[in-house]
Amino acid sequence: MLFLRSLAFNIAFYLVTALMLIGGLPLLVSRRSVLWLAQTWGRVTLWLLRVLVGIRVEFRGLEHIPPGGVMVAAKHQSALETIALVTVLDDFTYILKRELLWLPLFGWYLARSEMVAIDRSKGSRALALMNEEAAAAMAKGHRLIIFPEGTRRPPGAPPAYKFGVAHLYARLGVPCLPVALNTGRLWARNSLHRRPGTAVIAFLPPIPPGLEREVFFDLIQERIEAGSNALLGGDAPDAAPSPTGAAGQMPG
């Protein structure tokens, strides 16, 4: 049954994605319309997960999201959080690898929505370029989303944070919003199986700007890891459930 439900979701997910990519081509006229399409795609995906697989996505701590520009630093366990976060963060900008811009159709939308693309072939210069592009996005009031570990990590794996997040924090001078989650238990990386249950994405209290880089780097790891480990163990981190924090249903 698990295999059949996962198969049904995967087929529906890729079909919906393809239809939106093709049908949404006229929306490439503006960044705002592309972001609206991305949020619609995210909400439809969460609905498919709930109906076909039995995965309910619960957001906690939405009251911790500050107004205006903010750096959102999230744990990265699966593709689920990359989809889910866009449904609750308006005017978002992801930091992603440049190779994604080369994907047919999908890359066009990423480029039009002004995502910050990292060219890893530039070595140490890539970090400076990323910081400048991110600062330009922040000047426009965007919500900058970054995965400090750079890649997906299995639930419970030892943390592997990159110090680049501390450089970015120092350059931007805005609050950093840590995000803990347990999504990898239900949507594992490199797996086609989707397991029923509740995926929790918890926004923790923001870290104010102005800390020393080393202090911030230790603090962001501590908060994200403690929050995520608590969720994996069944306990809630320091983020109370928001009365409007449940997702997984189509807006009505």
Results as ranks from 00 to 15, higher is better:
residue 80 L to W: 15
residue 235 D to E: 15
residue 210 G to L: 14
residue 208 P to W: 07
residue 149 E to N: 08
residue 252 G to S: 06
residue 200 V to M: 08
residue 212 E to Y: 08
residue 246 A to F: 03
residue 106 F to D: 00
residue 101 L to H: 09
residue 216 F to R: 06
residue 1 M to E: 09
residue 181 L to N: 01
residue 157 A to R: 01
residue 5 R to Q: 01
residue 96 L to P: 10
residue 80 L to P: 00
residue 239 A to W: 13
residue 94 Y to L: 02
residue 18 A to R: 01
residue 235 D to Q: 06
residue 125 R to F: 03
residue 109 Y to N: 02
residue 102 W to G: 09
residue 242 S to D: 12
residue 34 V to L: 12
residue 203 F to C: 02
residue 86 V to N: 11
residue 132 E to A: 12
residue 125 R to I: 03
residue 133 E to T: 12
residue 36 W to I: 08
residue 34 V to R: 09
residue 48 L to T: 08
residue 37 L to V: 02
residue 100 L to D: 10
residue 117 A to G: 09
residue 136 A to S: 15
residue 242 S to M: 06
residue 93 T to H: 02
residue 122 K to V: 01
residue 71 M to I: 12
residue 196 P to Y: 06
residue 215 V to I: 08
residue 109 Y to G: 00
residue 109 Y to Q: 04
residue 160 A to N: 02
residue 156 G to D: 03
residue 64 H to K: 11
residue 7 L to K: 04
residue 112 R to G: 00
residue 131 N to R: 13
residue 36 W to S: 15
residue 83 I to E: 02
residue 163 F to Q: 11
residue 202 A to L: 11
residue 173 G to T: 04
residue 47 W to I: 00
residue 89 L to V: 01
residue 230 A to E: 07
residue 69 G to S: 10
residue 117 A to F: 08
residue 165 V to T: 07
residue 91 D to F: 09
residue 33 S to W: 15
residue 162 K to Q: 14
residue 233 G to L: 13
residue 239 A to I: 11
residue 39 Q to L: 03
residue 248 G to M: 03
residue 152 R to N: 05
residue 233 G to F: 04
residue 120 R to E: 14
residue 171 R to F: 05
residue 71 M to D: 13
residue 57 V to M: 02
residue 170 A to T: 07
residue 157 A to P: 04
residue 180 A to D: 06
residue 23 G to N: 05
residue 226 A to H: 15
residue 242 S to Q: 05
residue 231 L to S: 10
residue 86 V to Q: 13
residue 28 L to H: 13
residue 34 V to G: 02
residue 222 E to L: 12
residue 204 L to V: 06
residue 56 R to A: 12
residue 17 T to E: 02
residue 126 A to Y: 05
residue 52 L to R: 13
residue 122 K to Y: 07
residue 250 M to R: 14
residue 32 R to L: 09
residue 177 L to G: 05
residue 205 P to Y: 08
residue 80 L to A: 00
residue 78 S to P: 03
residue 117 A to V: 04
residue 140 K to D: 10
residue 161 Y to V: 14
residue 149 E to W: 12
residue 120 R to C: 12
residue 151 T to D: 01
